[in-house]
Computed example of a mutant assay.
Amino acid sequence: MKVYTRQQLALRNGQDKPEIWIAFRGLVYDVSSSRLWNKGMHYEHWAGQDLTEELRDAPHTDKVFDKFEPIGQLA
């Protein structure tokens, strides 16, 4: 599996590049196809970063990541 740096992840925020990526528990996910991540924002969460710690405040469980295939690992 390809390894991505935090800098590479940060560029995929829906603003700087068209891809919308997030990381969770060491895996990187491309959520570009999700309408819930329109323009790189999902409620108060921004794409291009590791959202592992922010999940505890979410109204859903980590099962939400089952909808997406991981595209890589976070370095």
Rank of each mutant, 00 (worst) to 15 (best):
R56A: 15
L11T: 07
P59S: 14
E54N: 11
G48K: 00
D57S: 14
F24K: 03
I22M: 00
G26P: 06
Y29N: 06
W37G: 01
P18H: 08
S32P: 00
A10V: 00
R6K: 14
S33F: 10
A75K: 12
L27P: 05
P59M: 15
F68R: 07
V3T: 14
R12K: 15
Q15E: 12
Y4L: 06
V3P: 05
K17G: 04
L36K: 13
S32E: 05
V31D: 03
S33E: 12
N38T: 11
Y43W: 14
L36V: 08
D66K: 15
G14V: 00
R35I: 10
L27Y: 12
F65Q: 11
S34D: 09
Y4I: 01
N13P: 01
W46P: 00
F24Y: 15
I71Q: 08
R6P: 02
L27W: 10
A10E: 04
L55K: 10
S32W: 03
W37I: 03
S34H: 04
H45Y: 14
K63Q: 15
R56W: 15
K17V: 09
Y4V: 00
A75Q: 15
A47W: 03
D16N: 10
R6H: 15
P18D: 13
V31Y: 05
H60G: 09
A47H: 07
A23V: 00
K63C: 08
I20E: 04
S34G: 04
H42N: 07
Q73P: 06
L74S: 01
Q49M: 00
S32D: 07
R56I: 15
G26C: 10
T5R: 11
H60V: 05
I71G: 03
S34P: 04
R6A: 12
Q8H: 07
A23N: 05
V28I: 08
T52R: 09
Q7L: 10
H45S: 08
S32F: 05
